[in-house]
Amino acid sequence: MDAPKTGEFAHIGKSVVVKGELSGSEDLYVDGHVEGTIELRNNSLIVGPNGTIKATVNAKSVVIQGKVDGAISASERVELRKSAVVNGDVSSHRIAIEDGASFQGKIDIQREPGKAAAS
C-alpha cells in the first residue's frame, strides 16, 4: 500500500516524533513515532511502514504496516498488513490480517447489535 496523497490525510513524516495526546477530525497517516494516545473516533489512522506507535489508539478504522505497542480500538475495522508488528489488545467489529503480520495480544470482535440478535 502506497502512502496516501497529501491532502487526503494529515501526514506525520518519518522524522517526526510526537509525545502526548493526538486527536483530530481528519484521517491521519503516521510514518513517524507517536507516544501517548491517538483519538480519531470518526476517522481513519494509517500507520505507514516506518511508523512506530506506543500509544492507546481509538479510531474508526486502523490500517497498520509498521509497529504498534498498545491497545487498539476501532469502531469499524482493523487491518494488519504483512509488515505489521502489533503488541497489544485489539477490539473492533472486523479485523483483517495478512499472512506475515505478527500479533501478540487479545482480539475481541465486537458483535454488531443486529447480527448478535439474529445469530
Binding site: 483483517a96 490480517i97 503480520a101 500479533f103 501478540q104 495480544g105 487479545k106
Partner: peptide, 19 residues
C-alpha cells in the same frame, strides 16, 4: 505464529482470541 485463519475461525464463533 500469528495465523489469520485461526483468528478468523475463533472470532467468527464469538470467542476471544489471545495470540
Amino acid at each position: 505464529s500469528t495465523s489469520a485463519s485461526n483468528i478468523r475461525f475463533l472470532t467468527a464463533k464469538g470467542h476471544k482470541n489471545y495470540s
